[in-house]
Design a protein around this nucleic acid. Sequence first.
DNA 1: AGTAGTTGTACAATCTTTGTCGCGTTGAAC
DNA 2: GTTCAACGCGACAAAGATTGTACAACTACT
Lengths: 319, 319
Amino acid sequence: MAEPNHLSGATDTPIYTIKTVVQQTGITPATLRAWERRYGVLSPGRSDGGYRLYSERDIAILRWLKTQVEAGVAISSAVTLLDLQHRAGEQPEKDILSMLPAGREPAAGPRNAPAVIEALLVALLAFHEGEAEAVLAEAFALYPVESVAEDIITPVLVEIGERWHRGDASIVQEHFATAFLRRRLSTLFHAYDQPATGPLAITGSAPGEWHDVGILLVSLTLRRHGWRVIYLGQNVPVSQLIQEAKSLAPDLVCFSATTADNVGGLLELSHAIDALPEPRPRLALGGRIMNTHEELRARFPHAFIGASARELIAFLGQP
Amino acid sequence: MAEPNHLSGATDTPIYTIKTVVQQTGITPATLRAWERRYGVLSPGRSDGGYRLYSERDIAILRWLKTQVEAGVAISSAVTLLDLQHRAGEQPEKDILSMLPAGREPAAGPRNAPAVIEALLVALLAFHEGEAEAVLAEAFALYPVESVAEDIITPVLVEIGERWHRGDASIVQEHFATAFLRRRLSTLFHAYDQPATGPLAITGSAPGEWHDVGILLVSLTLRRHGWRVIYLGQNVPVSQLIQEAKSLAPDLVCFSATTADNVGGLLELSHAIDALPEPRPRLALGGRIMNTHEELRARFPHAFIGASARELIAFLGQP
DNA sequence: AGTAGTTGTACAATCTTTGTCGCGTTGAAC
DNA sequence: GTTCAACGCGACAAAGATTGTACAACTACT
């Protein structure tokens, strides 16, 4: 596909003069240039007159480098690690986790996924929104969006859910964390333009289902892969949906449920779609209950059921 | 989609003299002309005598440019960026919005509000996310955040709710619109950093309450006014909340309920707060049911009950 | 201790960017 | 017609950047 990066303007466009970068990072201009010259880190754009122009991403990377250096890592190795990481990131799959055995040394290398997850957990459980934001910003600067979503955000949500069940986290902490991450995903979703053309997907949570972070993540991924996405949010009344589906003629309908109570709505949806005239939209389902109860799959003969956004994209192929 | 050109063309008509623009933007005339000369930004119309005449759109663009410059972007880059978007997308303002960190005050007034509301309604009911985005973007460029939230977003939500009751809008349309606006508000909320200091507020919806757009809007407003806000989202279990409140020691607890069913949770909350040792947080409540049923107020003797974020801010005074 | 590599910073000379000013003219308004 | 405001245009000056070289303080290894 080569180019999902329909990224709206921001993060990658070189616009900041070196002065701004100095203010934002606290690294002096001389050092900045030395790093560039000596280690080839960053290749800022140039203005007509030859001024360096940095992007937001550059700034994020520099911030990260600085924290490394402050933690005692040699700048040269920090850059090497960064490169490694970056190269791994190009191949979207396995990457992040496999980097670095990561013992318990203080400040070794770019944080791998478990370290980022840990940092994010700590920040969220302490209600430190600013810190959580910083951790995530760093993650987004270093890893592709899908990796962050699936290897960091999802695990954090799962972990917090588990801690709550174990009694190690309060429901208030869980609410705060969920609200924060949902907001973050919303912002991300928002940052991608709705394409004018392309296959159309309708997404949402099953009737009675109030968890919507998972399906939001799926919606984000779909959009990043060129789909037009109509995201309906939580607790979507399926019967009414079919009415709209007739006129909107989507190529895909994608819903999730997390508890057994809400599977009924999906069954209803499945039947209603089967009853539609050709061309029928494809149906994709997900959510915890669908993943943990294999036997449910048999009840949805015509639907794709997957555990992650990646699986869904793989199933859909190149639209 | 071709030219949406909402806002009834009013915004495109060149009527403002340079003096007005200076007042509105704080950019000096000399600079204004220099920008035009050097970077070719804007081509204001001319009066018979050759005076520059700017449109509201021009002013919006200038405001955006100014915020960019203040954010450290070189003016030359800012203009380039603007041009890029102008050329690439049909709706240049869309991207303006996404990087707009803050709206500034002067020149509000509901002048165009009805037109904007109408345009937004049309876009949302037709599931045209891109267009809705463009309309909102223009609104944000022209008016301060609070005004857009209270004079545009809120009325649109109310109107869509009413149309649904009347049967003029489907529940699916309602879901789509709500999901979109909630996302938009989330992004906005997100755009403001959590301040490190300042009074602390805990916000959320009553237990059992799934409407959270209103309280999200209040949270946004609080944060814009310097509060640290811990936003907990929908359906917050109040009893647990009190535990956390003891350690977090908030200055304000702010919750909302829309239906009578959920008032019970607020009563519980109110009593629990009364039972806290000094210093107790202030309690503020809102939501449709609180507004429509005056008699409820008597049951919350110690709480502030208001119908809008503005009222709340006025009540709180300058923190 | 000695040597070699690493890093941050300094200096100088030159060039860009960008806000502002001056000046002679022309339009708008009482 | 007098007065104030806006216009174009050129010119400036201050702030800021660029490159290349140099240097002192470290670190690491022998």
